Amino acid sequence: MWKGVYPAVTTKFKPDGSLDHDEMARSFSLQLDAGCDGLIVCGSLGEGPMLSHAERIEVLDVALAVAGTKPVLMTVADASTQASCSLARAAQKSGAAGLMVVPSMVYHTDERETVATLKAVAAAGDLPVMIYSNRLAYRVDVTHSMLETLAGDDHFVAIKESSDDIRRTTEILNAFGERYDVLTGVDNLAFEALTVGAHGWVAGLCCAFPAETVAIYKLVKAGRYDEALVIYRWFRPLLDLDVSTYLVQNIKLVEAIAADSNDRVRMPRMAHEGERRSQIESLVKRSLDTRPALPSDLHLL
């Protein structure tokens, strides 16, 4: 159902902290025009937990307005299952194509609680669900046995695999075949995951460099690994910025430089300054200076 490149888009703010609908529409359109297969809104990159439910639906509506026939997924990530169910229902009402669901944000659920929460949110939204498994950031691991239990529920169609263990992709595919679409959620493991069979890439630095992200995916799927690897090796220092406590500030700063956007964030996050900002600015400028040419036949893949 969800194969290809799905950027986890950033949420844009005006100087007064309110949502910047126009800049979001422009940024989201850049992703789609570059060949991305859909959008995922209000995740960690989209600062979802820092937004009210009403604001999250606003962001969703902006994405839906520019996405046309391409799917837009709402990230559901709240402290309580009750709140997650409420957001899932609101997203379904607004026209989301699906949900990307984080089992628990604050309390670290056990296996029984994780499965029950995912099932409750899926039932509330009555939409296809991508399970977001990220044991590092959220300390809740959606394990093989949980996927086995959830396989009997048709709402669950995909998994964003962010365990940071590249073996997981093969293990899921070996165990479940094509039951779940497996999308890698770790930017600097994307080439590795795609080459062992991942169906897609939930991408972060794609927000600033969508054409390169799409090129890597298309070339891998066409079996043109050497060409994909040249781009990936160039991209790797930037992709490393996705694996950080400061991933939101990192990627928004890259967007500000490479995509003519801005790096406004919502507190408690604060935009980079000083040495950290200078390091990222230097990295982006070096990357732009050495940006590889993309194959001319990508549009045919």
Rank of each mutant, 00 (worst) to 15 (best):
L19Q: 02
L194E: 10
L194H: 11
M50A: 15
T81M: 06
S145V: 09
N188K: 07
N174S: 13
T81G: 10
I216V: 15
L300S: 14
S162K: 04
A271W: 00
M1K: 05
G200D: 04
E212Y: 03
P292K: 05
L30K: 12
R56A: 09
A271N: 04
S94C: 01
I251R: 13
V76P: 13
V72F: 10
L301I: 09
K12T: 05
L147H: 09
G125Y: 05
S27K: 05
V62F: 04
S244F: 10
K252S: 05
V248N: 10
L64Y: 13
L300V: 06
S104V: 03
S84Q: 14
A34T: 05
K119R: 15
E227W: 00
P237G: 10
G197I: 02
A211M: 06
M74H: 01
G4P: 06
Y138S: 03
A158N: 05
L32V: 09
P7D: 08
M105D: 00
A8V: 10
I131R: 04
A120S: 15
I280T: 07
T10Y: 08
D165C: 04
A215Y: 06
I257E: 04
L118E: 02
A25N: 08
I40G: 13
L241W: 14
V121L: 06
L239F: 02
A83L: 12
A90G: 05
A63T: 08
A256Q: 15
K93F: 01
A293C: 08
D226M: 06
S80A: 14
F156R: 03
R167W: 06
D20K: 08
E148F: 01
G48A: 12
S104H: 12
G95D: 03
L239R: 15
K3A: 09
R236W: 03
G200F: 00
E178L: 09
E227D: 15
F191R: 15
K221A: 07
L173D: 09
T11D: 12
S282K: 13
V121Q: 10
A271G: 09
K221N: 08
L239W: 04
